[in-house]
Simulated scan of single mutants.
Amino acid sequence: MRILLFLLTNIAVLVVASIVLSVLGVERYISGSGLNLTSLLIFCAVFGFTGSIISLLLSKKMAKWGSKAQVIEQPRNHKEQWLLTTVQELAKEAGIKMPEVAIFPAHEANAFATGWNKNDALVAVSSGMLDRYPPDEIRAVMAHEIGHVANGDMVTLSLIQGVVNTFVMFFARIAGYAVDQFLRRDDEEGEGSVGWGYYIATMVFEILFGILASMIVMWFSRYREFRADEAGARLAGKGAMIAALARIQSEHEMSHMPDSMVAFGIRRGRKSSFGELFSSHPPINDRIAALQQL
């Protein structure tokens, strides 16, 4: 869910910025002689990174809102006190500041971490996991999430998304300009200028290229899950990390949960090879196998 919210915010900012700038005629990279590619690249970089940075800065607020997570200000019972103490110990061992700790209402076993930097983060666990799972497995899952924070995964994801945004906008405008000039090839007065065909084609190409480029972002997302699993094993023990993953997989296979669990990323079986390209998390069997080889 944290990844989905991040991407949706990023896309919304990108599309709104493109529309507003187009309407206001701010796109100065189009001149009488055609496209100024240097100016175009700078323009795309500025607004490409703006979308990802805004998404990063809003990530904690959006995660709290989207999951209805309640931050533990004062522990109300033994479990909440234990959770705070556990996260504090893991954060200290990982070399980061104590993140906010929250619980969100969900029967499924889930957890997530987010935040704009490793010293101002949020980690959250579902009420179902906190109620059902043994302490060592909960500790392993929280260690996994602390691993995401300590590895700076959200910042790295934002940088990758910024680069992806830049080139999506860049190539979409080149393609849109080419389409517009082709449609207006018999209009001599239209040379060096653009019509509505440019804006429509650019928007279509932005969506198409954005879908293709998301494969790069999803590849990194899968890669960082292996790194977070390794961090979880280092902080809480390999056996506990494997046991937590195996338990979640077992619950998932015995239930009617959706194919993608929103936070911890456990999903049933394997998707098609094409579907794997757009998956934010690797299959759990692959994650367990990687841990066993550590």
Rank of each mutant, 00 (worst) to 15 (best):
L157H: 01
I53F: 13
S55W: 02
L4Y: 12
M218L: 15
A143L: 08
A290L: 06
P75N: 07
Y199F: 09
P258N: 07
M98Q: 14
I160T: 00
G232F: 09
P134M: 00
L159Q: 01
L277R: 04
R247N: 14
F274R: 07
P258D: 10
K60H: 03
A17L: 12
G66A: 13
A143D: 08
T156H: 02
A233G: 06
W116K: 05
F226Y: 12
R139F: 03
A233L: 00
L57I: 06
L235S: 06
L159W: 02
A69N: 14
A124G: 09
M142L: 14
S255T: 14
I284Q: 09
G95C: 04
Y223N: 05
G275L: 08
L7K: 07
P258G: 07
L90C: 06
S126C: 00
K68L: 09
A113Y: 04
P135R: 15
M203Y: 01
Q81M: 05
L90D: 04
S31G: 15
F49W: 15
S59A: 06
N285E: 11
A150I: 00
S250M: 04
E73G: 00
I42P: 14
G192P: 05
L235M: 10
H256I: 05
L14V: 05
G152T: 04
V23K: 13
V15A: 01
P258I: 06
P99K: 07
R270T: 11
I30R: 12
L122V: 05
S272L: 06
R222K: 10
M1D: 10
F220T: 13
D153P: 01
L8K: 04
A236G: 06
S39A: 11
K97Q: 07
L7H: 11
T166Y: 00
H107F: 03
I207N: 14
V87D: 03
Q293W: 02
A201Q: 03
V155L: 10
F171M: 02
L235A: 09
T38S: 11
G128R: 13
V149F: 11
A143N: 10
A175H: 07
F274W: 04
W219R: 13
Y29E: 04
E27M: 13
H256N: 12
A113G: 02
G162M: 03
E27L: 11
G51Y: 11
M218T: 15
I216G: 14
E191V: 15
S273T: 14
I288C: 05
A121H: 10
S250N: 07
F274M: 08
A12C: 05
M203H: 00
I216H: 14
V125Q: 12
W65Y: 06
A175E: 01
M257Q: 09
A178F: 00
S67P: 05
L35Y: 06
R270P: 08
Y177S: 03
G232H: 10
D120S: 03
I207T: 15
V20P: 09
F205E: 00
V23N: 06
M98L: 09
